[in-house]
């Protein structure tokens, strides 16, 4: 972690300790949430999108300003069938540009802008073959996080222990080879299908929700957080998405840094209001997750809900 980031974390931690949680609503004015509004919005998300649920997390990490059984929200086993990088190429190949906010392009909503210098793809129109090859390479070249060679060479090779004696099971009723495969019987899919646990915590300092990602490979083994960045829109990887300690769970997890969340949400709320839609605070997380989808476009978590987004659309 960069030093400036460290210093900021220390500062943020101190501020969080000495200031009380927000109690007055500033949702329309600043795009932020008070603790009780976070609970209201979370309850609504859980009831409309039942794949989400509240959890209490590690008892030692519980935040006293949140109810014990509503510490954070989580949806588990969310499929991610393709890497974000390859999706972006496809958009670009199709000449697509998705800009939700043109006038003030601050890098948050402009998720699939012009391609940056990509010397590895000769033209703007990559053929299907080059796409395929790239995908395979990205996925296959990754050293496996666990059991990876690194400095673990004294872990005995499990193959030595392959048990002929102990676990002989011949059973006609067991379906052989059930990988987590996407529908087409295509070898590639085995490599590409990842799943995610997506969690939302309340960030007391920024007074906004914060999204965390825990990735798993096709055999449901934990992915190194750095590999999670492959599923983040490349404009955001390493910049707005950072790897930090989860406030309620052990280990390092990738997270969409919340420093701009309030401003972006304020902008979304302003757009809604200019269209004559009165935003309600219990819909905050739906709007929030909609915008987070621009950062993690291929992770298919659930935030669908019928919105009245006003008449015009960009």
């Amino acid at each position: 972690m960069v030093l400036s980031q460290r210093i900021h974390e220390a500062f943020k931690g101190t501020v969080e300790r000495i200031t009380g949680p927000r109690t007055v609503s500033a949702f329309k004015e600043k795009g932020v949430l008070s603790v009780s509004e976070f609970i209201i919005a979370g309850d609504n998300l859980v009831s409309k999108c039942p794949t989400w649920s509240w959890e209490s997390g590690e008892p030692s990490k519980r935040k006293s300003y949140l109810p014990a059984e509503k510490q954070y929200l989580i949806t588990r086993n969310v499929p991610c069938l393709r890497r974000a990088a390859s999706v972006e190429e496809e958009y670009e190949a199709a000449g697509g540009e998705i800009l939700l906010d043109n006038e003030d392009n601050d890098g948050w909503l402009a998720t699939h802008g012009k391609p940056k210098d990509r010397s590895d793809v000769e033209e703007n129109l990559p053929s299907m073959e080059t796409l395929e090859i790239r995908q395979k390479e990205t996925v296959r070249s990754i050293p496996s996080y666990f059991g990876g060679a690194e400095d673990e060479e004294d872990i005995p090779d499990m193959a030595d222990y392959e048990e002929a004696d102990n676990v002989i099971e011949t059973d006609a009723a067991t379906l052989q080879s059930t990988y987590l495969v996407a529908q087409e019987p295509d070898d590639d899919n085995i490599l590409r299908t990842r799943t995610y646990d997506v969690s939302i915590t309340y960030d007391k300092y920024y007074q906004t929700p914060r999204v965390w990602l825990t990735g798993y490979d096709e055999s449901r083994m934990l992915l190194q957080p750095e590999l999670v960045l492959e599923d983040v829109s490349q404009d955001h990887a390493h910049k707005t998405v950072t790897i930090e300690d989860h406030p309620h769970l052990p280990g390092k997890h990738a997270s969409v840094h919340p420093c701009r969340h309030g401003a972006v949400m304020k902008k979304i709320i302003d757009v809604l209001m200019s269209r004559g839609v009165e935003p309600e605070v219990d819909k905050y997380l739906f709007l929030f997750l909609k915008f987070v989808a621009s950062v993690i476009p291929t992770i298919e978590y659930d935030y669908t809900m019928d919105f009245d987004l006003g008449s015009s659309s960009t």
Partner: peptide
């Protein structure tokens, strides 16, 4: 394969 799994959590 009929082998156990292994996970290394030294990083965390």
């Amino acid at each position: 394969r009929k082998i156990p799994r292994c996970i290394n959590l030294a990083k965390s």
